[in-house]
Amino acid sequence: MFLGALNAEEKKAFLQIAHHFAWSNDDFSDAQKEVIATYCLEMQIEDIDYKADQFDLKATLGVFKQKEHQKIVLLETMALAMADRLTHLEALHEGERAVLDTMIQSFGLKPNLARIYADWTKAMLVLTDQGKNLIAL
C-alpha cells in the first residue's frame, strides 16, 4: 500500500527483508508467497532471487535512511507477519519475532509501534477479504 514511496534500491532491499522474514521460520507459506507477489505488483518490479546464506539483515536495514521509509518497511512487513491469520504478535515464530525485533531496534522505533501496526494490518486484511467477497457476489 505504501511501497511506492520507496526508491529502487529500497524496493529491492525490502523484498530481501520480506523473503528473509518469510523464511525465518523455515516455512514459506502460500499466504506469504501471495503477499510477496502483491508487493512486487505494487512496486512494479520483478521478485528477487533470495539467498539466505548471503543475506545480512542489519546491512539491508541500513539502506533505509528516512524514518518514514523505515516505518513503511515495518508496516508492510506486518502484512507478511499476519498473512497466516495470526491473531496477535506473540503467536509469531521466534525467528519471525527476532527479525521484527532487529528491525525495530535498528530503526530506533518504539516496540509498541509493532503492536499498533499489527492491529492495523489485521483490520486491513479483514477489509481486503470483505472486498474480495463483495466482488465474488
Rank of each mutant, 00 (worst) to 15 (best):
M1P: 15
F2D: 14
L3D: 04
L3V: 09
L3R: 03
L6G: 02
L6S: 03
N7H: 09
N7I: 10
N7R: 09
E10F: 08
K11R: 09
K11Y: 03
K11L: 06
K11T: 05
A13K: 04
A13V: 07
Q16T: 08
I17C: 04
I17G: 02
A18N: 04
H19G: 00
H19Y: 14
F21S: 05
S24H: 05
N25L: 01
N25E: 15
F28T: 03
D30C: 00
D30V: 11
A31L: 08
A31T: 07
Q32T: 04
V35Q: 09
I36L: 09
Y39L: 04
L41P: 00
E42R: 09
Q44S: 14
I45E: 10
I45L: 08
E46R: 10
I48S: 01
D49C: 10
D49A: 14
Y50T: 02
K51I: 15
K51R: 14
A52D: 12
D53K: 11
Q54D: 15
Q54E: 15
D56V: 11
A59T: 14
T60Y: 01
F64A: 01
K65Y: 09
K67P: 05
E68T: 13
H69R: 13
Q70F: 09
Q70H: 04
V73M: 03
V73K: 05
L74N: 02
L75I: 01
E76H: 07
E76N: 07
T77C: 14
T77S: 15
M78G: 07
A79D: 12
A81Q: 05
A81W: 03
D84P: 01
D84R: 07
R85W: 15
L86G: 07
H88R: 14
H88C: 11
E90H: 11
E90M: 14
A91W: 02
L92K: 04
L92D: 06
E96N: 13
R97M: 08
R97F: 05
L100Q: 00
D101E: 14
T102N: 08
T102P: 00
I104F: 03
I104V: 15
Q105I: 06
Q105F: 11
S106D: 08
S106L: 01
L109F: 11
N112H: 13
N112R: 07
A114L: 08
A114W: 07
R115F: 15
I116T: 13
I116R: 12
Y117W: 10
T121Y: 09
A123S: 11
M124K: 13
M124P: 03
L125F: 15
T128D: 15
T128I: 12
D129F: 09
D129S: 09
Q130N: 09
Q130T: 11
L134R: 07
L134G: 01
L137R: 12
